[in-house]
Nucleic acid binder design. Structure first.
Length: 425
RNA sequence: GUGCCCAUAGUUCAAUUGGCGGAACGUCUGACUGUGGAUCAGAAGGAUGUGGGUUCGAGACCCACUGGGCACCCCA
């Protein structure tokens, strides 16, 4: 093969089979979002770099964003996340929108990172948020949506779990341990890394940060305390609602969940595959109370989460949870017997399309075996033949490819015969 | 950005201590001039990822690059 210009690193070509999976995921996300009353929206793919400067976190902005200068000299970013765009859109129309506002979106994002399993530089992400309410009940609704999604795609609580924590609770506990406010960011990172490091190495890291032995021990018992949530009124109310929504079996308290984004202020959560296939978060989110003010709006709090298509795609594919998807839209191929019969063939195809069937014609006259094979390879269910014999009697031959049976019927009956084949398939 | 592993036909893989690059599946043609899948026969398909080096001779050994995988980092 001659040299083909390769795709941009980290992007994926979606051939029809992969596109069918992406569309299926989109439709599943849509169904779950809409079942809770969320409205679909979309933001620009290009945004000013300044939009992310405020709160997205330095790593994300400075190292992972695609930034370029446009012809007018402005610094433009290919969006690495959606929440700042959402904040702007809401801030711009804050006076006329109806709150609490429930919105969802599914679109492309870009992050410049090292390629590895579960990560690509161009990915699709589901975002869903509720703005204008600051309550544990609102937090619970978003967690419940995440759980319903997992249930809808067929993941059981034994396969996937949502881990929940609360930053305010952790702040209070850090306070109790005498950890000064300026050190809490580092301690949060320390907590975040615990599952990724050897125990001894982790303790060494804790000492480096400046934790005393007593503080370290306090922190360790804190992180091992599965009942800690009971000290948080927010989490207590959250779990109560989750039980009422019948998703509690998907959700579990975990004081180790902190999350990297700076703008989270209260409840945070992440879903993981717990069968061990992929160790990355399937989805993650939480409560943010200051985001709108940061982009110039009036203070308004929100809660939401995001799910990338890559990790969930790997997990569902490995567990065999992606249903068989139809890649071929046409169910019928009308063969072209000869050049002379081409106009009549096209007329037949047009008639059937107007009656509602999805019909492809062979684009030229060719041997019938070739045309039958074409229909078979593309996954069509019926093949029609209009040859000299049929033309003479005003009939059409309809073959059911799956059963291998065929009938020759009058032209007015073709639609009904094809429909019978399709419904029986 | 750091470290380790990998790269041979469209795909999955062979090729002995360095000695003329093969197979299966897939594709195409025919057996079958009005019928797909199954079977049989035949054919096409490769500058062994790119560029250097060692050697009489490199798919194999050495270096760099590109692409991919895994771990770190970060995160969806």
């Amino acid at each position: 093969m001659k040299a083909v210009i390769p795709p941009v690193k980290g992007t994926r070509d979606f051939y029809p089979p992969q596109m069918a999976v992406r569309t299926w995921l989109y439709q599943t996300v849509r169904r779950v979002s809409e079942s809770f009353g969320y409205q679909e929206y979309e933001a620009p793919i290009l945004e000013p770099l300044a939009l992310y400067a405020a709160k997205s976190g330095e790593e994300l902005v400075k190292k992972q964003s695609y930034v370029f200068t446009d012809r007018g000299g402005d610094e433009i970013t290919l969006r690495p996340e959606l929440t700042p765009s959402l904040a702007r859109m809401v801030a711009q129309k804050q006076g006329e929108l109806v709150f609490p506002l429930r919105w969802w979106s599914f679109g492309p994002f870009w992050r410049y990172e090292k390629m590895q399993r579960g990560r690509s530089r161009e990915f699709f992400q589901w975002n869903i948020d509720m703005l204008g309410v600051n309550s544990p009940e609102a937090d619970a609704e978003l967690v419940a949506i995440a759980a319903e999604f997992l249930r809808t795609v067929g993941l059981t609580p034994a396969q996937a779990r949502i881990f929940v924590n609360n930053r305010r609770l952790m702040e209070a506990e850090f306070e109790r341990l005498g950890i000064p406010p300026e050190k809490r960011g580092e301690v949060a990172t320390l907590v975040d890394r615990r599952s990724k490091m050897e125990a001894a190495e982790w303790e060494e890291y804790a000492t480096e940060i400046g934790l005393s032995g007593a503080q370290l021990n306090g922190l360790k018992s804190l992180l091992a305390n599965e009942a800690l949530w009971q000290q948080s009124e927010e989490l207590t109310r959250l779990f109560e609602v989750l039980r009422a929504l019948d998703v509690a079996d998907y959700v579990q308290f975990d004081p180790n969940i902190m999350r990297g984004l700076l703008y989270y202020t209260g409840t945070v959560f992440e879903a993981f595959d717990i069968t061990g296939g992929v160790r990355r978060a399937i989805l993650g989110g939480g409560r943010y109370d200051n985001l709108l003010a940061d982009v110039g709006g009036d203070p308004l709090s929100g809660v939401g989460f995001a799910m990338g298509d890559v990790v969930i795609g790997i997990i569902l594919s490995e567990l065999g949870l992606i249903p068989p998807l139809r890649v071929q839209p046409a169910s019928v191929l009308v063969t072209v017997f000869s050049s002379e019969l081409l106009p009549e063939t096209l007329r037949l195809a047009a008639e059937l399309r107007r009656s509602g069937l999805f019909v492809a014609t062979y684009p030229e006259s060719a041997k019938l075996p070739k045309q039958f094979k074409y229909a078979d390879r593309l996954g069509m269910q019926a093949v029609l033949v209009l040859g000299p014999d049929e033309l003479a009697t005003g009939q059409v031959t309809v073959k059911d490819l799956k059963r291998g049976q065929q009938v020759t019927v009058s032209r007015t009956e073709v639609y009904a015969v094809v429909m019978k084949i399709l419904t029986e398939a």
